[in-house]
């Protein structure tokens, strides 16, 4: 066990955990966040995605020690992006398009798309698809999700 400080959604938290613990468990258990989800634990589905240093990171396969403490290593989760009252524009786009069924994958889909679009503001459709090549939605709300992503991309 070790004391590890994490900057999550703009706040610092210190937790006492095994440094090898994947970040996901620290976020969802120790910090009681609902956004990141366990889907596969294998880096194959995207459900656990968080944004670290502007990049989409799969927290289920990221040891917590590798994202500890350093300034600039801010971790953003879906709840850090916006709220029900003030959703982030990409969240609003998903709401407007009614782009989900069970909603379990939304965390991964929205954060993966956001991290990609932040770095590629004017992507082609093929690039968008490429960025989602290993992100899953088992309800297959694909058409709506892609519409939401493009709606947000058009606005950005």
């Amino acid at each position: 066990m070790a004391a590890i400080t994490l900057n999550v959604n703009g706040r610092a938290h210190t937790v006492d955990v095994d440094p090898a613990t994947p970040l996901l468990y620290v976020l969802s258990d120790d910090l009681a966040l609902n956004g990141p989800k366990f889907g596969c634990g294998l880096g194959q589905c995207g459900a656990c995605t968080v944004i670290v240093r502007g990049r989409a990171v799969r927290s289920c396969v990221t040891p917590v020690s590798t994202v500890a403490g350093a300034p600039g290593a801010d971790i953003m989760t879906l709840e850090g992006l916006g709220t029900v009252e003030r959703p982030h524009p990409i969240q609003q786009a998903f709401i407007d398009e009614q782009a989900a069924q069970c909603g379990f994958c939304l965390n991964g889909v929205i954060l993966t798309a956001k991290a990609f679009l932040d770095q590629n503001p004017k992507p082609s459709d093929a690039q968008i698809s490429q960025s989602l090549a290993t992100t899953l939605c088992r309800c297959f709300a694909h058409t709506r999700m892609l519409r939401a992503i493009k709606r947000y991309a058009g606005r950005a």
Binding site: T77, V84, G103
Partner: peptide, 21 residues
């Protein structure tokens, strides 16, 4: 009518059974 649960799901507020503590 839009789904009443959509805003909470899209903002990570929604409580799935996975989040029951």
């Amino acid at each position: 009518v839009p789904r009443v649960d959509m805003p909470a799901m899209a903002t990570g507020q929604f409580e799935f059974v996975h989040n029951v503590r």
